[in-house]
């Protein structure tokens, strides 16, 4: 992106000589970074490799190629963890910089391969017998350990999603879109308990100042699960008023947290769930005239816009 105002900033003495030299080198492309291209390449490489390998591992069962396939994948997985272990910085409770540029991707590859191989062993040899919950809980536990020991947010997200799967929840964009996060009604309470527990853990760890950069990942996944579960509970269970009050409190908490930490994704989630809930409660009051509905949507949304402008400061009014 061109930026023709550097000279102006330098003339007004808002930048010193060294900063000016460095920045003009960047904007004139004397320094040219391939950071995003290379990282995207690595990430897509890891994704397509594991997607392919995840299907490939089930093919040609019984043949030599099949055995070789398994051995090679396991070897790559072990190599990944060995590499990460060798370069790992000593554990601290603070955020650790990646020791090498490849470290994050190697660890992600190792974790995904573990999931593939473990799932394969369970599917074909039934390593965990009929204990399918255990078969999912084991990688979840391992991923939590790996995430903390190697300081990796991606693996932490993997751990949270796998742990949710162990409870029976399908946490993915597709499942959420298809309204399929709770395949059965009986999963609503486990979902609520699961996300409340994990949120509590996240806040405790945050207060203890242990890996505070993980808090966002915890809260993001759990607020998606919790708010969806509470909305489902509101739609399906009695007494409505109780579930409405719980949902309203949770949404308010999300909005409060968003404003406190300036992570406005929680603001969006809180406001949206609260709005759906309020509208649902009004709709239950009985037959309402269309004019009243139009007035309700008009007034509430204009009110929301004014609330946002009053409460969220931006660049302009900093």
């Amino acid at each position: 992106m061109p930026f023709p105002y550097l000279d102006q900033l330098f003339e007004k003495k808002l930048l010193d000589k060294k900063q000016y030299t460095l920045l003009s080198a960047i904007y004139s492309k004397k320094i040219f970074s391939l950071y995003y291209e290379l990282r995207t390449g690595l990430y897509l490489g890891v994704l397509s490799f594991t997607t392919g390998a995840g299907i490939l591992i089930y093919e040609n069962a019984g043949s030599l190629a099949h055995l070789l396939n398994n051995v090679v994948l396991s070897a790559i997985m072990l190599a990944c963890f060995w590499y990460a272990g060798r370069h790992r910085a000593p554990f601290t409770t603070a955020e650790v910089e990646s020791p090498t540029p490849y470290y994050d991707y190697v660890l992600l590859l190792g974790a995904l391969l573990f999931l593939i191989i473990e799932g394969y062993l369970q599917n074909i040899y039934g390593v965990f017998g009929q204990q399918w919950g255990l078969a999912v809980a084991v990688p979840a536990a391992l991923f939590f350990v790996v995430a903390y020991v190697f300081d990796h947010r991606g693996v932490l997200s993997l751990a949270i999603v796998t742990a949710a799967a162990a409870v029976g929840l399908q946490v993915s964009v597709v499942a959420w879109y298809k309204n399929n996060v709770f395949s059965e009604e009986s999963l609503i309470y486990p979902a609520i308990i699961f996300s409340v527990c994990l949120t509590a853990i996240a806040f405790v760890l945050d207060n203890l100042k242990i890996k505070r950069h993980f808090t966002f990942s915890y809260l993001l996944w759990n607020s998606v699960i919790l708010l969806t579960a509470l909305l489902a509970a509101l739609f399906q269970f009695q007494p409505k008023l109780l579930f409405f009050l719980i949902l309203a409190t949770t949404s308010a908490g999300a909005i409060y947290h968003a404003r406190k930490t300036q992570t406005y994704v929680f603001f969006l989630m809180g406001v949206t769930s609260l709005y759906i809930a309020v509208t649902y409660m009004i709709a239950r009051l009985g037959n309402i005239d269309p004019v009243i509905w139009y007035l309700y949507f008009l007034a509430s949304c204009i009110g929301l816009v004014f609330f946002v402008i009053r409460s969220v400061r931006t660049l302009g009014n900093r």
Partner: peptide, 29 residues
């Protein structure tokens, strides 16, 4: 100095949705 009201992405999405609903309701009315 800049006096724009220019919020971050998620606030922008919130305001976008709210405005879209308000304006649809307004035109319906």
């Amino acid at each position: 100095p800049c006096h724009f009201y220019a919020p971050t992405l998620f606030i922008r999405v919130t305001l976008f949705l709210a405005t879209l609903i308000a304006i649809s309701a307004g035109s319906g009315l």
